[in-house]
């Protein structure tokens, strides 16, 4: 339950922080979520999943509301065969950044608790 709540917390924080500030505040969201966890592997996993999930959903919503072929054009620009891969690779970046943030958070709490 705590893990799930952390997952939701990271997504919520990530959404609002990146609206207000630069995109990399998603790492801060992961970091804050990580403070609630003990294991850095689990921390990474939850952070990664939260970041990945948030980006996929956001991108999916934005793509659906549009009829532009820009995603195809950019997939082509980045040498990717289709838009899904572009979405997945974008979300992968989001997941990694959030995951790394979360591991950092876990490590801070562990250091403080010692």
């Amino acid at each position: 339950m705590k893990k799930f709540l952390t997952f939701v917390l990271i997504i919520t924080l990530g959404y609002f922080l990146t609206i207000l500030g630069p995109w990399y505040l998603i790492a801060l969201a992961g970091f804050l979520g990580g403070l609630a966890l003990k294991n850095q592997w689990i921390g990474f996993l939850i952070g990664f999943l939260a970041g990945f999930f948030l980006w996929v959903v956001q991108v999916w919503l934005m793509t659906n509301a549009s009829n532009s072929d820009l995603p195809e054009r950019l997939a082509q620009l980045f040498g990717l065969p289709n838009t899904s891969l572009l979405v997945i690779s974008s979300a992968l970046v989001g997941g990694l950044v959030t995951g790394f943030g979360a591991v950092t958070g876990v490590n801070l709490i562990k250091t403080l608790k010692k």
Binding site: W23, W55, A65, P71, S90, V93, V97
Partner: peptide
């Protein structure tokens, strides 16, 4: 700058327009 292009909050996705 990859993050500024592909992140949903700041990237090109924001430029997608509807009808």
């Amino acid at each position: 700058a990859i993050g500024k292009i592909i992140s949903p909050s700041h990237g090109f996705w924001r430029l997608l327009e509807g009808d």
